[in-house]
């Protein structure tokens, strides 16, 4: 209940459809220009697509990936919500949506667009040390060469790959 992301307004609940359609259609377009003061939290210096493209289309990418993963088991990381959270979690709160300072909520509360993702999804990246899988499929590793050009991005992929290979024998015990 303390999480603003999970709070639903009475209005939103009663007129969910109306609000979603009207606000999602109208507000982000007008909001995005005067919205420069919102500090973007991100690791590295480049997202998986251009910032302008992401601002307008992140929901489409996420929606597409959501159905691919859920129904077909396709687990590429480039457009996955987990990947977004990895990079955009607020170092202070560790989350993308626990307060208005955080990446997702910052914009969504400004644009007054209801966020449904975090009713179920964790707002935090998987805690370090938890990701020790015997066989991680780092399909994003090659992507890193062209898309994840930043140092931190590279380092992250390397680290994951190292962890994965280190753990190759350990985790199955």
């Amino acid at each position: 209940m303390s999480n603003p992301a999970k709070r639903r307004s009475i209005l939103g609940w009663l007129a969910a459809v109306l609000a979603a359609v009207l606000l999602a259609g109208v507000l982000p377009a007008s909001a995005h220009d005067e919205h420069g003061d919102h500090k973007v939290i991100a690791k590295g210096d480049k997202c998986v697509e251009d910032t302008a493209y992401m601002r307008r289309n992140h929901m489409k990418l996420l929606m597409h990936q959501r159905d691919e993963t859920m129904h077909k088991g396709i687990r590429t990381t480039k457009y996955s919500l987990k990947n977004c959270i990895e990079c955009h979690a607020n170092p202070k709160t560790g989350s993308v949506a626990s307060s208005k300072e955080d990446f997702c909520m910052g914009c969504h509360s400004y644009a007054a667009v209801k966020l449904d993702c975090f009713e179920c999804h964790s707002t935090k990246p998987k805690a370090a040390g938890d990701t020790l899988h015997p066989i991680v499929a780092p399909s994003a590793q090659p992507e890193g060469k062209d898309k994840q050009s930043s140092l931190s991005g590279k380092m992250r992929w390397q680290m994951q790959a190292n962890l994965a290979s280190l753990n190759g024998g350990e985790g199955v015990k």
Binding site: C120, S122, A137
Partner: peptide, 28 residues
């Protein structure tokens, strides 16, 4: 709150054993 990032779950939906589909997909 504090779900496992690989296993989203939240109020108001029905759920059940997934056969740990997230593990199966990485060969566990």
């Amino acid at each position: 709150e504090d779900q496992n990032p690989e296993v989203p779950r939240g109020k108001g939906c029905v759920e059940g054993c997934t056969l740990c589909v997230h593990r199966i997909d990485r060969d566990q």
